[in-house]
Amino acid sequence: MEAHKISVTKVMTKKPKPANDQLGFGRHFTDHMFIMDYHIEKGWFDPRIVPYQALTLDPAAMIFHYGQTVFEGLKAYYTDSNEIQLFRPEENIKRLNRSSARMCIPEIDPELALTAIKQLVAVDKEWVPTIEGTSLYIRPFIVATEPYLGVAPAKQYQFIIILSPVGAYYSEGINPVKIAVENQYIRAIKGGTGEAKTAGNYAGSLIAQEKVTNHGFAQVLWLDGYEQKYIEEVGSMNVFFKINGEVVTPALSGSILPGITRMSVIELLKQWGVPVRETKLSLTDLQAAYQQGTLEEAFGSGTAAVISPIGELHYQSHALVLNNNQTGPLAKKLYDTLTGIQYGKLEDAFNWTVSLT
C-alpha cells in the first residue's frame, strides 16, 4: 500500500458538539470515521477517512451469524501544553492483531493502523475535550462482511475506527466500588477466547453484570472456569490486590485479557520498588488474608476508569470491607501517576505517550 496513503473526504456540515458536562461515555460521535476493506484476493485496501455514517451490510454478512469480530479501546488526551497525545497505542494495535489471529481475522499493518488513528484524530481534533478528566475515546474494530451462511473464516472484512468524546469516569473523584463474586456464570476458560478482545466475551458477561447490578453492586468478580476457585478479572478490568506489602495480580493464563493499563501498573510498581507478583490467587487465600488483616487494598485497572478501587467484596453471605471502604494510597498514587502521564502533567519516563504530530 503506497506509503500508507489515506484518502480524506470531509463533511459538508459539522455536528453540534455536546457540552463538556454532558459527555457521558460512548454516547456522542465525531464527524468522521476511518474505513478500510479486505478481500482474500487483494488483502487490505482502500484506507479512507469519510463522514461518520451508517454501515450497509448484507443480511447474510458473517458477523451477524458467527460473531467474527475484534475491537480495541484507547484514548487521546489534551495536555497542559495544548498538544494532543495518545497513550501506548502500539500496544493496543499489537493486542488487536493478537485478537485477530485468535478469531481467524487477517492482521493489520501496525504502522498503517497507527497512522490511521493519528490522522483520524487530527481531522476531528476539535472534538478532543479540554477540561480535566475528559478525553477522546478511540474505538478501532474489525467485522466480517462476507455474505455467506457457512461456518468458516470470512473472506471479506472491514477495519473501522470511530471516535467519541467522553467525560471523566469519576464525576466526583476516584471512589471505591462494591463488587460481588460470580459463582454461577463463567466469563472464559483457557483455550477459549478470553484473552481476545472480541464481542462474544462481553455479550456472555451481561447476565451476571445485570444480576449483581440489581443487588446494588457495581461489578462482578470473575472466577476461573474450571474449579470456580481462582480469581481472574473484575468486570471488564484486570484486578490487583495488595497483601502484606506485596501486590498480587492473576497471571495471564489464556482466559484473561492482557490489559494495557495492567501492563503499565506492573511496570510502575517495579520502578517504585513495590513487590509485584503475577500468580494464581484463590478466593480462599484472599479471604484468609482478609481474616489475618494483611489484605490492604484491591483495585481494578482498565482504559475507561484507569484505576478503580474496590471498597467491598461480597461472596455469598460474606462481606470483605477493604481499607475502611476508602481509596488506598497505592491505588491513588497509581491513578495520579497514570493520568498525570496521559495528560502531560508528569514526565513520561517510559516513553509511553505518542504525540499526534
Rank of each mutant, 00 (worst) to 15 (best):
K118I: 13
K118A: 07
K118E: 05
L120R: 10
L120G: 10
L120V: 10
V121Y: 07
V121C: 00
V121W: 08
A122C: 07
A122F: 14
V123E: 13
V123P: 03
D124K: 02
D124C: 07
D124Y: 06
K125T: 10
E126H: 12
E126S: 14
W127F: 02
P129F: 10
P129T: 12
P129I: 10
P129W: 09
T130H: 13
T130W: 14
T130E: 15
T130F: 13
T130R: 15
E132N: 13
G133Y: 08
T134E: 01
S135T: 08
S135R: 09
S135Q: 04
S135C: 12
L136Y: 06
Y137W: 07
Y137F: 14
Y137T: 07
Y137R: 05
R139C: 08
P140C: 03
I142R: 00
I142T: 12
A144Y: 00
A144M: 05
T145G: 09
E146I: 01
E146R: 11
P147F: 01
Y148G: 09
Y148I: 09
L149D: 01
L149A: 04
G150Y: 07
G150L: 03
G150H: 12
G150S: 11
V151Q: 04
V151Y: 11
V151N: 01
A152N: 09
A152D: 08
A152T: 14
A152M: 14
P153C: 02
P153G: 01
P153L: 01
P153E: 01
P153Y: 05
A154H: 09
A154T: 00
A154K: 08
K155F: 03
K155W: 00
Q156A: 15
F159I: 00
F159P: 03
F159Q: 02
F159H: 00
F159G: 01
F159L: 00
I160L: 13
I160C: 05
I161V: 12
I161S: 12
I161E: 12
I162K: 10
L163T: 02
L163D: 11
S164L: 08
S164A: 10
S164D: 13
P165G: 13
P165M: 03
V166R: 00
V166P: 01
G167A: 06
A168K: 12
Y169H: 10
Y169M: 02
Y169L: 04
Y170R: 01
Y170G: 03
S171W: 06
E172P: 04
E172R: 10
I174C: 14
I174Q: 15
I174E: 13
N175T: 14
N175G: 00
N175K: 15
P176A: 04
